[in-house]
Design a protein around this nucleic acid. Structure first.
Lengths: 336, 336
DNA sequence: CTGTTAGCGCTTTCAA
DNA sequence: TTGAAAGCGCTAACAG
């Protein structure tokens, strides 16, 4: 089947291509007669405007790129939904890119998106290399970065105060009367979860409590990592009545191990996480956690992008610290 | 900053734009000297090829569209991941579209994708209207439809045998000795989940067991719907020892309610779902369920699309019935 | 209110 | 081995 273009419509309606363009985009008044003829021709021929041609001409693609480590992870899925929804509202389509947390793939996608001339990029980075986004920023494509501290570059960032999240969660445990509070750490302290551990330590110190490395096992940010960390804790033989887990996923994994070991939550051990992933509310018992906004962060990131795209924001980088919130569910109780 | 084009590169390297194009795409041998000069100029000027222009010229966008009801739903998220991965492998980007199960939004996206000249569309439809995809198919964009029976149109489809899934799951419960088996239904019987209920009924009848509407509450396919359905069940006062839930999501919601009511799973109540979403393996207890492939379905759908895009498949519609598999975990036990 | 036309950045045929 | 040039489908001056 031959491709129908604006030219075909023009011929069929016996007008110029310009006029067709004007009625399609409603960008100049056109007489009712011509409008009717054109609309009729469009209908008849089943014409679909070629957005590619239009993009080339206008230098606007009405597309944004979203790079996430894994769109299957409920945490990122929520953000992605926020992005898509806000994009839809504003007339932007989103290209979904999973980096699988691989540097290589992040780079490939970054270049691809630039090539495709998306008008903005939302990047949930795992590799902290500033260099890679530098050329993109230079190319004047607005970028929003999540959860990384990118200094000295004109990109907006969204982060949570991880230190405070850790601090606040730990304080809550302390207020419940706990003194021997273990901590499940991520593998590397140089991650968002790592900063939470510092908050944990500060809260402990401020209350005159001591933390010790033996009660701070590490896990790989997955359920299995949490299970293993809990095993380490049990094996250490040291007493503890509560656990601060640097994220929900590991907290849930740890709960499993604890229960398998015959411990009751929260009667024997209180446990608290950070993130508020969907699993947290459906775990048993439901996990008390320090929540951070996800969907809303996605929508606002798009708004930031569009501000810059449409030229409504010209100033320097905006660094948003998202508010955390303590969600009290059933996994923590007063020390008896 | 001025936009760098192939022309700038040509000038800087003192060659023709054609030659630049040839080295970029490696589509014609070019002498080492010129190649070096061109590469150097590209590097120096930070040139990024304009994929939009190329698409216009080649009439190929290397993009596919994915329409899902809700990318946040783990079930669709898995499919989406499969699509994205397979797309990445094959050099296709994917535009993510959430329809929110709204007819209007499906339609908008369908037209948008056509306008953007994606080369294929994977459509997880919620509204069964054949008419809406008809113009797309006519426009020769390959389409794959999930979970709907679209007859008389040249589109490939992927489905599972929902009846069999329901039948098989229920049979398993019966084999465990259960006789009073409740069923959590979707709101509408005209959905994939609805067909599963028919399988449930058949299995019951074949074993001489009776099903009754009062033990078949409906839910809205979400966790909260499952909770509510379980409440209905409890309120009915009727005895039951097992529940067949037409999908995992509602099963998990129901488990929650059941436990809050002091019932143990599986000791007091066995429960079985369909789908095998990620939450099913992380729920407590892990949910026994009839699984269907999701990620693999996503990757294969892309392969089907690409077959047609590249002209490797010219025949009529392919209708794939995906295999289901009973995954035995911990939520069902023998009736004592 | 309408039409003519240049040109967006690229690929690719044709010619050298 | 290289270059000139047409043209993909559209928008938006500019001219009438």
């Amino acid at each position: 089947m031959p491709i129908i273009t604006i030219k075909d419509i023009a011929k069929k309606a016996d007008v110029s291509v310009a006029t067709v363009s004007y009625v399609i985009n409603n960008t100049r008044p056109v007489s009712p007669e011509l409008t009717a003829r054109i609309l009729h021709a469009i209908e008849e021929l089943g014409y679909s405007p070629n957005a590619v041609a239009r993009s080339l001409r206008q230098k606007r693609t009405k597309m944004i790129g979203l790079i996430v480590p894994d769109s299957t992870n409920p945490f990122f899925a929520e953000i992605a939904k926020g992005v898509e929804d806000a994009g839809y509202e504003a007339g932007y389509s989103v290209i979904l890119c999973n980096s699988n947390a691989e540097f290589e793939r992040e780079l490939v996608y970054l270049n691809l998106l630039q090539s495709k001339r998306v008008e903005g990029i939302i990047f949930i980075a795992t590799t902290t290399h500033v260099e890679q986004i530098c050329p993109i920023v230079k190319s004047s494509i607005p970028v929003v970065i999540f959860y990384r501290d990118i200094r000295g570059l004109d990109v907006d960032t969204f982060r949570i105060n991880n230190f405070e999240a850790g601090y606040r969660g730990t304080r809550y445990l302390i207020e419940l009367g706990h003194q021997e509070i273990a901590c499940i750490q991520p593998l590397s302290p140089e991650t968002p979860s790592g900063e939470r551990v510092a908050g944990y330590q500060r809260a402990m110190e401020e209350s005159g409590l001591t933390w010790r490395e033996t009660l701070m096992p590490r896990g790989d940010n997955r359920l299995s990592g949490g299970k293993r960390a809990a095993e380490d804790l049990l094996r250490s033989g040291l007493p503890f009545t509560a656990i601060f887990s640097s994220n929900d996923t590991m907290a849930i994994g740890a709960m499993r191990t604890l229960r398998e070991a015959g411990l009751r939550i929260p009667e024997d051990i209180s446990i608290l996480g950070v993130d508020d992933i969907i699993l947290a509310s459906y775990s048993d018992p439901p996990l008390t956690t320090v929540a951070q906004p996800k969907y809303e962060a996605g929508t606002q990131a798009v708004r930031f992008l569009i501000d810059r795209i449409e030229g409504n924001y010209q100033q320097g980088p905006r660094n948003v610290i998202l508010n955390t919130e303590l969600i009290i569910r059933k996994s923590c109780s007063h020390l008896k």
